[in-house]
Structures are given as C-alpha cells and as structure tokens.
Design a protein around this nucleic acid. Structure first.
Length: 923
RNA sequence: GCCCAGAUGGCGGAACUGGUAGACGCGCUGGAUUCAAAAUCCAGUUCUGGCAACAGAGUGUGGGUUCGAUUCCCACUCUGGGUACCA
C-alpha cells in the first residue's frame, strides 16, 4: 500500500495530542470565532454515521477560519442526562452514571478517530455536579425573578415584593397565573409567610402548576409522547391515560414577543424562523364572555374573528374545560362523563390526527348570545383543545370548516352572515367577504368589521381585545431519576429555594422506578442519602433533558469555573456562537429554550448579548433503513409481516443488527429485552419471521443506525470526512450508502501519487510553475474559498478533485503549487495534508499555515467560448476575444458560416448578446 | 389536519443573481497493463433514431411569464421530517 493512511493518521493523532495543537486560549490579539455543534447524547449504540456529518462540516469550517487567522473556539461535550441510560438502569439495576461513563468513552474513541480539532480540555458533561450546579443556579435565578411588562424584562423578585409592600398588586403589569387575586398593600402585609410565598409563586418565572401528562397506571409511571404508540405504552403495550400533575413550569410565554422579534436579528434559515414563528403563534383577536341560561357561570371564548359573532350558533368547550360538570344537565351527565373519559385516553396528538372523525356531545345547557340574546347550545368537542386560548370557542359554522362539519354532523344551525356567498356546501374561510345579517356590522368588510366588533364588545363590557400566543409555558419537571435535581425543598407542601451555593447532588436510590404511590424515583431517597436536606422533604422531580442544553454554549467558554457559571471576561471575549450546526429536529425545542434562557440571563445582566446563535445551519438527516416487528395487541405474540393485516397489531422498531435481509434472528431478539424473552412468533410459510421495513431518519430510537468505525478502518478518517461531505448538500437529507466511498479514496491515492514516485519516495520539484499550473491552482483557490464562505461543503470536494486531475495531467509536482494546494485540502483531509506539509519541510503544523491568497492575474482569459443559441436552443460554440463590443460580437456571429444553417431565409427577428455569457438569435 | 422541506441520468449529486442541463464521483461498457487478480491508466456513457454528421425529446405533473426557465409565478401529485386541532 502506497498511501498508508493507518500509519499517517496514527502518527499525527499522537503528535497533535502531544503538541496540544487544538488547545485554545483567549488571545486578544486575534479576532475570535466560535463554532459549535449540537451536543450529542451519548447513547449505547455509539456514534452513527449521521452524527459526524455536522461535526465534520463544522470542523472543516473551524479549520478554514483558523487558517484565515481567527482564534477559533470549537469545543465538544455531552448532554449526558437522558432516558435510555435510565431505562437501562431500570432493567439491570446498574447506576446510569456507569452506563453513561461507558458510553462516553466509546463516543470519545469514535470521535478521536475522525480527526476533529476539538479542544478537549474544555469538555463538559451535563450530568456532572460541576456542571449541573450551575444549571441549578440558573433555575434559582429564574425562581427569584419575575417579568415586568413595563420595563419589558425580567427583574429580581425582591423588587416585586417591595412593590407589594408599598402598593399591593393593582399596578403590577406582569405575567402571572390566571387565578391570582387582587390585594392591597395592607392585605399583603397582613399575609403570613406561607400566604406570601404562594402569591409570589404565581409571578415567579419558575413556578408550580397543574399540567396533563401521559400516565400509564400499569407501569406506574409517566411516559414521554415518544413512548406511547396508538394509545398504548411502547413497552408492554399497556393503556395510557391523561392525568393532571403538579409540576414546575417556566414562564417562557412572558418572552413570546421578544422571541418573535429576535428572529430578525439572527442568520437562520427562513424555514426554521418560520417554524419558530408558527410555534409562538401570535394572533390578534378578542375575548368574549357568554352568559349561561339559568346558570351563574359564564364561558369566556377567544376568537380571531369577532366580526363573525352574528354567525355564532353554538359554543364548543374542550372535554377538560373546568365547567364541564357544572354545565351538564341531569339527563346528559352520563354521556358527557363517558365522552370526557374516552377523551382522556387519547393523546392530543391522536385527537389532532383524527380530523375526519368528528365527535362531540351536548351538555344540555345553553349560552346567551351577547348581542342577539338568543339561546345557543353548548357542546363538548375533542377538536377544541384545553391548552389553546380559553379552551372554549364560539362556533361559526358558516365561516370555519371544522365548525361547519360539526354543525352538519349534529344538525345544528348554520346561519349565513356573508353577502352573496353560498355556505350550503362548505364554510367560507375567505377574508374578502362583506358581512350581512349582523346588525351594526352589516355592509362592512372583514377588516373593518373586526375593529368595529371589538369596539362594541368593549363598550358593552362583554369582552376585550386580546393578543393570544399559541406558545405555552414550558413544563420543567420530569418524574425521572437521571436528571438534575431541583434546589428546592418543601415545608407544608410549599416549595422553598435552597440558599446553599452548593450543588444538590443526585441521591442514591435502591431502584430507579417510581414508588408504589406513584411518586418519582427520588422519593425513594432517605434523608441521609441527600447531600443537602431541608424542610419536610426535597423536590422529587428532576429537570428535563433540555435544561442542561439550554446554556451549555456559555459553559464551554469557562468549563472548570467553580465560582461562577462563566467568568465575565471570558463571555465578553467569546460572545455569541458565530456558527451553530445541528439537526432541524431541534427547531422548536432546544433552539427556542436556549434563546429564552439567553434573553433571561441578558435581562439579569449576566451576559451582554440576547441571542445565543448568530448563524445557524441545519444539517439534513442521514436516512437509514429500519425494520419492524408486529405485536398482536394485548399479547406478547409477534406476527410475520405478510400476515400482519389479519390481526390488530402495534408496529415496533427492531434493531437492524438482529435482522438479516429482513429475516429476524429470533434468538437474539428474545435476548434484546426481558419482556421479549417469552415472546411467541407466528412465522411465514418458509418458517421465517419477516420484518417490515421503511427508509426513515437514522436514529437510536429507530434502531437503524450504522457506525463509522468499519469505514475508518477500511479507508481512513480523511476518506470518511471527504465522503460524508461529498454525499450532497449539508442541509439536505440523504440516504446512507457507502458505495461511492472508494471514489473519494482513489482521489486521495491519486494526490499521494502526484507527490511520490513509484518507489513511494516523496518526490517534489523546486521548479517555477507554469501559467497553466498557476491557473489550475488559483481556479481552485477561488472556487473553494467562495464555496466555503457559502457553506457549500460538497462542491469543494469536486473542486479539489478537479485540481488534482489537472495537476496529474500536467504532471505537476512543483513545490509552490503543492504547498498551497495542501493547505486547501487540509480542512477536509487534515491527516494526509499534515503529512505532506511536513514532508515539504515545514516544521510547524499545517493548522498554523495561512490560507492561500487568490491572484486574479492567473485567471485572466483572452477568449470566451460563446454558446450560440437559436430561439434559446444551443447549436454551437463560437470562441471570441474577451474584449469585443456587442456590435463586434454581432458581426462575428453573423459572419460565421455555421450561423447561416440555422437562419430562415437569411433573416432573424432579434439578436440578444449577453457579454461573457451567451448569444441568442431569435428567429 | 397543520407547519417545514424536497423531487434533475442506472445511483449520489452540479448548474451561486433567469443564460451551454447533467460538473465531480459511483456504476456500467470496451480497451491497455498482468500468468491471473487487486491496483492503475485510456476511451465511451441522459434517452430515442443514426456508422456518423446530426435531429428530436428531456430537470415530479399541468399551465403561465420571458428572446431564453432546473431557477420566477399559479394549480396539482408524490416523498421525507416535525407536530401542541392556531378557533
């Protein structure tokens, strides 16, 4: 083997480690540049080929920036709290920390092989107390803050307390719980400590609230949406229901407007901004109160179309609405409670997907239309969600398709309020209509009618204008073991913040399961098991996965600091992340929460910028081929794919390592999980269990991952890096396929041969390069520099190949050319580049070289090859001097003999000449 | 349902602001080298017809704008991803 990548890669990996080539410090003489990858969760399956895709791109960019004189921060760490380690702990009893540690070791080994320029001295792990101490610290700041709508920022809670002491809460304009009472200063001062605490909790940015969760009674635990399949738990196939639970939440909605506006200041793709915009979901409308016939309660609804109020012919409330039982009349009570119970068995997701199945029940009660004073029926319907608006709507069947279908199905009135529009076949959702049959709104267009109706609603005191956001406050507790404990203790079930600066460490427990009474696993810890214990008990919940990842980019600047979450001078130097690369699946989770925390830390003066990630690139997914097994519902029997349609089945992913050409290895499958040990199988005619398949996202949860290890072994890291980039545009998703990899590998071999003779001796010429050779190089410099600036990583590989092909044809092994070329190659293939750089006699690392400068003089052309088209169809190429005028070009073309072949009777209508581009003759 | 993205040869893709469609690589075909293989090199390779010159068709489908459309506009189909029924 001439190009011995194994030897070369080992040699330079060792050398770089010894020389600390990638260690970075705050060097104020250079401009900083911060390149970050989305944190990996170290899963047991190891790194799959989809992970490094983004890391390779960011590594290439980091190296490119460094060669251009920037001080580049390019760190890596682990988001090491998470469900899989906990599941493994439940199954085996092994502490998740051990599993996590093992997985990290494996990840690190894999990452090291790929030749990344990470500064590993800055590694962080969210599950280490040194790190999560500061996650808890941020939670404390959130707990100790409220949002002031007058200053439009978060302020310390102490300011709110002094306002309460002076004036009560009448003048306070702050987001708070809906049930917050009004009180005077006198009343406030008379409250006891516990009463004051419970009031303050309604204002804090971190607060307790009742929220719905997926509860699985059989497993005695709360499940993530991901763990629920068709209303059954993925593990075991048990029924799942919706249950209310007291949980910590973060008042992210206070930041809704700023999160929306901030999108203008960042360089993210339009699509991801659009997704966040839709998620925040700002809409203007009105709150309107409907009184109830013979009942002292009232229903408040939110609508974006108050102009259609005369078209409202019934009210629909969600099955979770607090007035459901109060509104159900005696003879309706039974079907109402049955309907609501059925609804709690469904996830919101299911209710949402099932649009065609319209369902609902009548409560038996009537609301009074605020303008017509007519009685309109109140219904309960799944299509109304408790979590949006007020959980109740006024149904306008002539103007909303879902209301229209609901009315059709249950035979309710469809009054028409649109002039000259037929609503017998479908609702009119078009906003160009003129309103009629609507008293004071008659003759107005939609826009004017909205304004007029709000005026009237406010005048009559039955409602008000309201800006509504779809964004909900973020639930911040998980009933899990493997997460950050809260720095919270309880006295009389009122939560208090721990004042200790020390970290509340995860206590040891005897089992990682919930208790018999349904409390989270931490409830198993005895007083002595906690390093800090106060009050009656500590908080049993832990923080969600996104807690640690919402601020980790700050910690990389100062990973070992035990005095502060990050030192001021470090955050001042490094500032925002300049380039952030990661998957689009985090579009609204991680990316929104990080923005929220960054704004909060900014408000409280801890950092000087408001947006965490200046430029964001979403890498496309690498798709893999998944396999499925089919479990017959309510049993532990699996049926082969051909016969699955004869049964009611749940489709489950199966690890592709247990499947060969879609045939399941039953023995290995049984050993996979304890619950499969006694599984039974219905086989096909040939006695095999055939799995289903699908091409979808490569992901640990789909068990369809493929690791890069074998490829590195066979071709080397340089080849893998180039191949992953060569696969296609970074942002596009693409199926994983290794069949093209040897093309990239031969390219590196070809480059090696260019600089080595037949005996594999390094062979370079000191001669001055020719103009053609310079031209080839500078064409390459131009193309690569431009492509990297626009993050077109795949086309750079082609450019590198073209240059080597040209130099090979020219038999050019001249030092000046090769030395520049190897710098261009080094971000992609750092090992071979460093080897040749060193062989060229350089004593420093190629990482400290300077990016070659483009010299336009080598690219000058004397002639242009013009494509000559007739009616837009290219017919032939005509080579002409570059500096001709349009008129001269025209003459040359018309005199050219071939031209006449295409003219009809020697004439044409028009000639279009675009200098240096094209000539088009219109016939 | 809703939101976002995508569709170009046998395959991955290129064509950056409307200007030669298919760069680069894989695969395939033929040839050179070799006892043979690997490796390497040379030639060809969108489809149809033709020995060729050349002609016709062609960027998911149907329309439109333009001298000229993979690129812009309208309608649709399919695929992937996300999802908390946007009242």
């Amino acid at each position: 083997m001439q190009y011995n990548f194994k030897k070369i890669e080992k040699k330079w990996a060792t050398n770089w480690r010894k020389q600390k080539t990638y260690k970075i410090t705050e060097d104020h003489s250079k401009k900083k540049f911060y390149v970050l990858d989305m944190f990996p969760y170290p899963s047991g399956a190891g790194l799959h080929v989809g992970h490094p895709l983004g890391y390779i791109a960011s590594d290439i960019y980091s190296r490119y920036k460094r060669l251009n004189g920037f001080n580049v921060l390019h760190p890596m760490g682990y988001d090491s709290f998470g469900l899989p380690a906990e599941q493994y702990a439940i199954q085996t009893g092994q502490h998740p920390e051990i599993t996590t540690e093992n997985n990290i070791l494996r990840y690190r080994e894999q990452l090291d092989k790929i030749g990344f320029s990470f500064d590993w001295s800055r590694e962080i792990r969210t599950s280490q107390p040194l790190y999560y101490k500061w996650t808890q610290w941020i939670f404390k700041q959130l707990f100790n803050s409220y949002y002031c709508n007058i200053d439009n920022k978060a302020l310390p809670i102490s300011e709110l307390i002094s306002e309460f002491t002076r004036n009560g809460n009448a003048m306070v304009k702050s987001p708070c719980d809906e049930n917050t009472p009004l009180f005077t200063a006198k009343e406030w001062n008379a409250f006891d400590g516990e009463q004051q605490e419970s009031i303050l909790l309604k204002y804090r940015l971190a607060y307790l609230s009742e929220t719905w969760v997926n509860w699985c009674p059989e497993l005695g635990t709360v499940l993530a949406n991901d763990e629920v399949k068709d209303g059954l738990s993925e593990r075991g196939g048990f029924p799942v229901e919706q249950k209310k639970m007291k949980q910590w939440s973060l008042r992210i909605t206070a930041y809704a407007e700023r999160l929306l506006k901030g999108l203008n200041d960042i360089e993210w793709s339009d699509s991801i901004k659009e997704i966040q915009k839709n998620w925040i979901g700002k809409s203007k409308g009105a709150l309107i109160r409907f009184n109830i016939h013979n009942n002292s309660n009232y229903i408040e609804i939110f609508t974006t179309r108050p102009d259609t109020i005369y078209g409202a012919s019934f009210i629909v409330i969600s099955p979770e609405h607090p007035l459901v039982s109060a509104l159900s009349t005696k003879n309706q009570q039974k079907i109402v409670s049955e309907y609501c119970k059925r609804s709690t068995l469904k996830s919101e997701r299911e209710r949402q997907a099932n649009v065609k199945d319209i369902s609902g029940v009548f409560t038996g009660s009537y609301a009074i239309h605020p303008f017509t004073k007519e009685k309109i029926p109140i219904w309960i319907g799944e299509y109304v969600l408790a979590s949006y608006g007020t959980g109740a709507i006024m149904a306008v069947p002539c103007g909303d398709q879902r209301d229209w279908e609901f009315a059709q199905k249950f035979n309710l009135d469809i009054p028409n309020i649109f002039k000259n529009i037929d609503v017998n076949e479908k609702a009119n959702e078009n906003k160009d209509a003129i309103i009629e049959n609507s008293d004071f709104l008659n003759g107005l267009n939609v826009h004017d009618a909205i304004l007029r109706s709000i005026l009237e609603i406010q005048k009559q005191g039955i409602g008000q204008e309201k800006i509504n956001y779809k964004l909900r406050n973020a639930i911040f507790s998980r009933q899990r073991y493997w997460g950050e404990p809260f720095p919270i203790f309880y006295k009389n079930e009122i939560p208090y913040l721990l004042e200790e600066v020390d970290c509340v460490e995860l206590p040891l427990v005897n089992k990682y399961l919930p208790t018999k009474t349904g409390d989270p696993p931490l409830a198993r810890a005895k007083k002595k098991d906690w390093n800090i214990f106060k009050g009656d008990r500590m908080e049993y919940n832990t923080m969600p996965g996104w807690a640690g990842s919402s601020w980790y980019f700050l910690r990389f600047m100062d990973p070992k600091n035990n005095k502060e979450f990050v030192a001021k001078e470090k955050v001042t130097y490094w500032g925002q992340v300049d380039l952030y690369i990661g998957g689009a699946e985090h579009a609204v989770g991680h990316l929104l929460y990080s923005r929220f925390w960054t704004k909060f830390l900014f408000d409280r003066g801890f950092i000087h910028f408001e947006e965490p990630f200046k430029k964001l690139i979403n890498q496309g997914m690498i798709l893999g081929r998944s396999n499925f097994v089919y479990r017959i519902n309510g049993t532990n029997t699996f049926v082969s794919a051909e016969q699955k349609d004869n049964y009611e089945v749940t489709r489950l992913h199966v690890d592709i390592n247990y499947v060969d050409k879609d045939v399941l290895n039953i023995e290995r499958f049984k050993k996979w999980r304890p619950e499969f040990e006694n599984a039974k199988f219905i086989l096909n005619k040939t006695g095999n269990y055939i799995c289903g398949f699908e091409v979808e996202k490569m992901s640990k949860s789909k068990y369809n991952t493929q690791t890069p290890d074998e490829l590195i072994n066979q071709f080397g890291a340089d080849t893998l890096r180039m191949y992953e980039m060569f696969l296609g545009p970074l942002e596009q998703s693409k199926p994983w396929d290794t069949k093209g990899i040897n093309g990239v590998h031969s390219f590196l071999k070809k480059f090696w041969r260019l600089t080595h003779d037949n005996e594999n001796n390094f062979n370079i010429s000191q001669e001055k390069p020719s103009d053609t050779e310079y031209k080839s190089l500078h064409k390459c410099i131009k193309k690569i520099t431009e492509d990297l600036e626009r993050f077109s990583f795949n086309t750079v590989v082609s450019a590198l190949m073209i240059c080597v092909n040209e130099l090979t044809d020219l038999k050019c092994n001249k030092k000046e050319i090769i030395e520049a070329y190897v710098i261009l190659l080094s971000p992609y293939a750092p090992y071979i580049s460093e080897e040749i750089w060193s062989a060229l006699g350089n004593s420093n690392s190629i990482n400290d070289a300077t990016w070659p400068q483009l010299e336009e003089k080598y690219l000058k052309q004397e002639n242009i090859k013009y494509p000559v088209a007739f009616n837009g169809k290219m017919r032939f190429i005509l080579e002409l001097p570059v500096d001709l005028s349009k008129e001269e070009i025209k003459q040359h073309v018309l005199e050219y003999p071939k031209t006449n072949n295409y003219l009809i009777e020697n004439s044409f209508k028009k000639i279009i000449i675009v200098p240096n581009k094209i000539i088009n003759i219109v016939l």
